[in-house]
């Protein structure tokens, strides 16, 4: 019997490794295409039959997208919208999360439920009337509009994540500070927030990534080229200069890298936050 286990170990493992490699090749194929495309000249993009690996490797596309295609402008917009949304999101969600985690009041459970369900809200459902609200408030075609709407649509999840963190801090620490004469706001600023730093970082990164990747609201509300974030800018890029795929692949690469790096920092805690108590982050 232990023989069969050993047999499985020796026979099963190579099978597992082989299957893993095959699945990885399938899942990473688009990234392979991106890298091999961005490193070739346009002549080598349009050869039939295509080549997996270009004969001549070039980095010229980086200079082209940077200087000729306003990529810097799109980056700037994405950065402004991302940072703005993150700050606004934290300003709104930290107090709300603290209230839900620490204070006793009627309707606490109701608020908790509200924040969980609102997470699932479909942007498309409201975008058709938000357009009108935005035009009334003068938020169409502005960074502020996207900052607000991204902060709002990520807020529920932030409240959810942060209240979990706040709750995991022992009440005794706070009570000890109260006895020493600290006010509630002092306790929050000097004790709760520093202890929840990992939670704050996760929340901030998650919000930033969501805003960076947002497409629907930008598509609906932004008209001016210079205000377009990367997602919208590159989408229009395909429409306008279609068939310059080596440039698009290069721009894609540059646009993905920042969020890819940030995502790896938070992925484990993100899974725990989304799937609930059974997963420990």
């Amino acid at each position: 019997m232990s023989g069969s286990v050993a047999a499985w170990r020796s026979r099963g493992k190579p099978v597992a490794v082989a299957l893993t490699v095959v699945l990885l090749l399938v899942m990473l194929f688009p990234f392979f295409v991106m890298i091999t495309t961005m490193l070739r000249t346009s002549q080598e993009v349009y050869v039939s039959p295509p080549r997996w690996i270009p004969h001549i490797v070039t980095f010229r596309n980086f200079a082209i997208v940077w200087s000729q295609y306003q990529l810097l402008g799109y980056f700037k917009s994405s950065l402004v919208i991302g940072v703005g949304s993150t700050i606004l999101n934290l300003l709104l969600s930290i107090p709300a999360a603290y209230a839900i985690a620490r204070l006793r009041f009627a309707g606490r459970q109701l608020f908790l439920y509200l924040f969980l369900v609102v997470q699932m809200f479909s942007p498309v459902v409201v975008v058709i009337s938000l357009f009108k609200t935005f035009s009334k408030l003068g938020l169409l075609d502005t960074y502020s509009g996207l900052v607000i709407i991204n902060a709002v649509f990520t807020m529920a999840f932030s409240v959810w994540l942060l209240s979990g963190y706040f709750r995991s801090i022992p009440v005794e620490i706070e009570e000890a500070a109260f006895i020493d004469g600290a006010t509630r706001s002092q306790t929050v600023i000097r004790i709760i927030l520093p202890i929840s730093a990992p939670g704050l970082v996760t929340t901030a990164i998650y919000t930033f990534i969501s805003a960076w990747n947002e497409f629907l609201f930008a598509l609906s509300f932004i008209q001016t080229q210079s205000k377009m974030p990367l997602t919208l800018g590159l989408y229009r890029f395909v429409g306008r200069w279609s068939s310059q795929w080596e440039l698009l692949a290069t721009a894609d690469f540059l646009a993905i890298i920042p969020v890819l790096v940030l995502f790896y920092v938070i992925q484990q805690r993100l899974v725990a936050g989304l799937a609930g108590g059974a997963v420990k982050g």
């Binding site: 590159l234 795929w245 894609d252 969020v259």
Partner: peptide
């Protein structure tokens, strides 16, 4: 394996169209 989730969805989709 996480890369497709970590990457930006609209950007990935543009890549897929190529």
């Amino acid at each position: 394996f996480i890369a497709p989730w970590a990457s930006s969805v609209p950007i990935s989709v543009l890549l897929w169209s190529w």
